[in-house]
């Protein structure tokens, strides 16, 4: 991380016209489906069955958004997803920082073994645990309640590994030793030394976790089957199944489900890009 500044200079070459042209094309390709979602959401089902497809906004946007909000349950879904993704993000960041610090800087028995366990399960696909999770959730009577999607994703092995890697470098061991010599308790140490040092990485991990939790699909559609308390993705899957067979309403739902993250990207784009690039260098 420390060397980021130095290498920031990178290459000094200026981009030519071709570079701009390609990048602009690619940007259009990236943005077009989203813009077109909004266009389609502002039309009606019949218009979307005509040729050529619409390229400008129609007058039905608010009507369709309203139908999606109520009939497709997107309103409840957005609030639920906020609760779910928010809780998961806080849990993951907090617990990952604590455990990551312990693995990075403290000595205790079985440290190597436990770390190996964490790293070993990092790449295990979620498919491998859905069947028992589903049985557990059914057994506890949690189906269709938000804790069924919060609790299983509240911690992440990747998060622990990520924080450990970061803290090994970012938190000099001498600083900890100095604090210990001063008689600082572990609580004080974490509060005054670890958290400040870990803050940038916590922000990156938090952002990655939030986006992931917001967009999580596989487990939620299994756990929240009845659709009474959907997350955004569950509600969208319902639209995909044909719950409201109206393309313009489906697009309005997709728009509603994407908008919050899009707004965040517009507001914090620079930080998010920086975070992903830093995360990449670490990971």
């Amino acid at each position: 991380m420390a060397s980021l500044k130095k290498r920031g200079a990178g290459r000094q070459l200026h981009g030519g016209k071709v570079a701009y042209a390609v990048l602009i094309l690619f940007t259009i390709g990236s943005l077009f489906p989203l813009v077109w979602t909004a266009i389609a959401a502002s039309r009606n089902n019949t218009r979307l069955a005509e040729t050529p497809p619409p390229f400008w906004f129609g007058g039905n946007l608010f009507k369709n958004l309203e139908i999606a909000w109520t009939d497709a349950n997107m309103g409840t879904a957005l609030i639920n997803t906020l609760v779910v993704a928010g809780t998961i993000t806080v849990g993951t960041v907090l617990f990952s920082t604590l455990a990551g610090f312990a693995f990075a800087k403290l000595r205790f028995r079985f440290r190597g073994l436990l770390l190996l366990l964490v790293i070993g399960t990092m790449m295990v696909p979620p498919q491998l645990s859905v069947v028992p999770l589903f049985m557990m959730v059914a057994e506890f009577g949690w189906t269709d309640q938000l804790q069924s999607v919060i609790l299983p994703t509240l911690v992440s092995a990747f998060g622990v590994f990520f924080m450990r890697q970061y803290l090994i470098e970012a938190l000099p061991t001498e600083v900890i030793e100095a604090a210990r010599v001063d008689g600082a308790s572990s609580l004080r140490l974490i509060w005054h030394v670890v958290f400040p040092a870990a803050r940038p990485a916590m922000a990156v991990l938090g952002m990655l976790t939030f986006v992931m939790a917001w967009n999580d699909f596989f487990w939620p559609i299994i756990a929240l089957t009845q659709g009474g308390e959907p997350t955004v993705q569950v509600a969208l899957a319902g639209l995909g199944r044909g719950q409201i067979p109206d393309q313009s309403v489906i697009m309005a739902g997709a728009l509603l489900g994407t908008l919050p993250l899009l707004i965040a990207f517009v507001l914090f784009g620079k930080q998010i890009v920086g975070g992903i690039m830093q995360g990449a260098v670490k990971g």
Binding site: L23, L31, P33, L34, N215, L236, A264, K270, V273
Partner: peptide, 24 residues
């Protein structure tokens, strides 16, 4: 920076939303 943010927006779009749009 504009280019970087713009090409990252698809990453903000969920699988479900993106697929519904592409289906259409």
């Amino acid at each position: 920076m504009f280019f970087r943010v713009a090409i990252l927006t698809p990453y903000a779009t969920s699988v479900a939303a993106a697929t519904l749009v592409f289906v259409l």
